[in-house]
Design a binder for these strands. Sequence first.
DNA 1: TTAATGATGGGCT
DNA 2: GCCCATCATTAAA
Length: 189
Amino acid sequence: MMKVSKERIHNRDFFLKDTLKVAEWLLGKVLSVKYCGDILRGIINETEAYTEHDPASHSYCGVTQRNKNMFDIGGKCYVYLIYGMYYCFNISTEEKGKGCAVLIRGLIPIEGIEIMKRNRNTNDEKILTNGPGKLCQALSIDLEFNKEDIIDSERIWLEEGTSPKEILKTRRIGINRGRELEWRFVGKF
DNA sequence: TTAATGATGGGCT
DNA sequence: GCCCATCATTAAA
């Protein structure tokens, strides 16, 4: 069984680096959310990078009410409603004023699995958190987490976790512009 | 197995 | 009014 460190990540410097580097670095880290006295935890195994010069990014056309957290300093949560029904969870990257972030697209559940099953209304562990909308539903991440600081928040944080054995780079999912960029990262454990 | 489709609502031109 | 960084369900093969 793989070793998973619970040491919390408190250093903002990790998030100030190049967005592509952060997206790759996040693979293997543990995303943790406090939920009604319980803690829900999952290993990040899929991410995507979005930057301000990227036509697929929400930040491409400048600051708006919705995307303003993408322009905040690296380490802030950016949550938005997609297709009227699901939320997507991002962490901002680089310096304040740069509109970039990493979308968390997949987790491997490791704690609070029964609660996640309830939140997702399924008993199938394989489909609990293998998608950006699914993992938000499983961990109960919604707009209340928008603007939260992953460095010092008391209800959402990252832990050291583990290291992927292998990292795949592919094109991003579900976009129409910027398709050629291989800015999606998948970790194998 | 893969492909098509409906649900559902905010953002932005 | 059109476009979405999605997902579950149904239909087709």
